[in-house]
Amino acid sequence: MYTQGLNIEAGDKSIPLEDRNSALMQRFQSRIDAEEKVEPTDWMPEGYRKTLIRQISQHAHSEIVGMLPEGNWITRAPSLRRKMILLAKVQDEGGHGLYLYSAAETLGISRAELIDQLLTGKAKYSSIFNYPTPTWADVGAIGWLVDGAAIMNQVPLCRCSYGPYARAMIRVCKEESFHQRQGYEIMIALSQGTAEQKRMAQEALNRWWWPSLMMFGPSDAASLHSSQNMAWKIKRVSNDELRQKFVDVTVPQAEFLGLTVPDPDLRWNGETGHYEFGEIDWTEFNQVLAGNGPCNRDRMKKRRKAHDDGAWVREAALAHAEKRRARQAMTAAAAE
């Protein structure tokens, strides 16, 4: 579903600074400047590799954890059609997770290691999934706003310099645009429905609006290392630019629904051709990232439980594969 502008933290020493003047680095940079894709077998700076592992795995983890808030409504979807669409959507998120983990594996790390980082709390995932889905309208709001924000962020990633990630993003983006439409379609049905349904829709917008804006990450002024990521073309458009684009596209959609965006400072600026909007509560954002969102504990508890409860199944599959191999080897030896 989403990658967030939280890939580099203040004071992080794990991303090494390379000698920018070495011949290898200069050659690498000139390839990037020429818009060539970097492939898994190519030489790459250690900082580039680590930054990508972190970003791609955070993205993968976000897909996996992101299955939970919407999965919360699969068994309560209000019609067979909605149930099938939601199942397909959440299944897509799992698929995105799978090929993002595969993309990360091309950089020399295993899926098991990455999942371990998630379950031990070492790796982060998008802050947005730490908010709850108490009503059906939340499923609509996630599709409309969260997937909408994800598309804004991910479309430029289709041109990311790292080939496997860029190619994965092309497929992800196609599916995300279907997800965004299904979410908006739920919101249309609710906003044209009964008073109770309209209330559900408005309350969901009230709860998801600001967290969706936070999905783009800290403002450019507070964003660390982003110039290096821009030079490497891992990141291609700044957080604030993407956020502005999202607001500009989404506000008219809210108006079409007859819903009110929960921001008293929101106004159209005819001169700039953009909406101006109020100050984001960065304290809340940082608290959610630090583990204090409404659902952080529950999300991780559920992921760990699924992992622990499933250990015997994964062990069985490995043991069976081993037995098969041994039997085949014996049969082959007997035939000789």
């Binding site: 996996i64 299955m67 939970l68 999965g71 699969i74 068994t75 149930k83 199942l87 959440v90 299944q91 799992g94 997770g97 799978l98 983990y101 559920k302 439980k305 699924a306 409860d309 499933g310 250990a311 199944v313 994964r314």
Partner: peptide
């Protein structure tokens, strides 16, 4: 469908 998001592996 109750398994979705809670299965032993992806």
């Amino acid at each position: 469908s109750e398994w979705c998001g809670h299965a032993p592996q992806l």
